[in-house]
Amino acid sequence: MTTTETATARDYPFHGNVRPLLAEILHAVDRLLDTGEPTTIDLASLPFGPGELAYLEETLGTGELSANLDALGSSRIRETAFPGVWWLEHRNVHDEIVGRFVEITRTPEILSSQDADITAGRARLGDQLD
């Protein structure tokens, strides 16, 4: 094959790196339904060409629920258009993205109140009553 063959719009920007990932997410959803086992996919470790990450995000879309977390910078946690498939984006205090994950789970762990925080909060509430 030579480069005289014209590249079509379909070749660019989609290099074919998104489809296998969607298949992996599909299998993870099956696993969640069958055994309840959650899966986390770290998007930082995967190859994406220009535009492909945005394409993945678009394809997964937006679902019913989204949350903002304010701890060491902001984080956005939102269910995609596919229930059980969550998109997590962590930012630092300079608002730079420091981590992107797809979680296949019923509720991402980071949404639950944590025992250590509950204990500290209880103490603060107790102080108010003193």
Binding site: T40, I41, D42, A44, S45, L69, A71, L72, S75, H90, V98, G99, F101, E109, I110, Q114, D115, A116, D117
Partner: peptide
């Protein structure tokens, strides 16, 4: 003053920069 949630976020991003799988968090 980092909350436990902040700590979990710190661990998840550390796993990511260490190129360790999320199961190691």
């Amino acid at each position: 003053g980092v909350s436990r949630r902040g700590f979990l976020k710190y661990c998840a991003t550390t796993a990511s920069i260490l190129a360790l799988p999320p199961t190691m968090i």
